[in-house]
């Protein structure tokens, strides 16, 4: 896929970092402010998709990105699975909030909830990236 003009490339490079960190902010503060893993994950993936569309990508690179996105996607859900299973392994309940709850409205509070948000953030951002990449690949092969 070809990239866009130099203006778009420069602006998107400047913006991508901001978008990325804004997404991380939404994920990390998910238990205190509106947002959370899903919303933040979508913003994070927005940064990557912006870069891919603005700068263009060649076939070899897109497959590498797809593999990495697939790996991150699985590891995100796997992290979520591990967090929820630890409670079960401790002999109590699935999804037990086994960490200390902390002081409300602090960044380190609410036990496992922020960890779950981070796991969901990884999963959603990687999944959305792979969906967009899948659409790009489909567009290439539709002339058969």
């Amino acid at each position: 896929m070809k990239g866009m003009t130099e203006i778009v490339k420069t602006i998107s490079r400047l913006l991508a970092g901001l978008i990325f960190f804004y997404g991380i902010y939404i994920v990390v503060f998910g238990h205190l402010t509106p947002g959370g893993g899903f919303a933040g994950g979508i913003v994070i993936s927005g940064a990557f998709i912006l870069l891919i569309i603005a700068n263009g990508i060649d076939e070899e690179k897109i497959n590498r990105v797809r593999e990495k996105a697939g790996f991150l996607e699985s590891s995100g859900i796997f992290l979520f699975w591990v967090i929820s299973t630890i409670g079960l392994c401790m002999g109590t309940f699935f999804f037990l909030n086994f960490l200390g709850k902390g002081k409300p409205l602090n960044i380190f509070s609410a036990g496992t909830v922020p960890l779950c948000n981070i796991a969901i953030g990884i999963e959603v951002s990687a999944a959305l990236c792979s969906i967009v990449i899948a659409f790009m690949l489909v567009k290439k092969g539709d002339k058969k």
Binding site: S75, W81, T85, L88
Partner: peptide
Amino acid sequence: QYLLPVLVVLPLGGALLIQL
């Protein structure tokens, strides 16, 4: 009764572990 969620959790975890 704590074995009941294992029936759901275990194949789910296995599915993800295979991808990793």
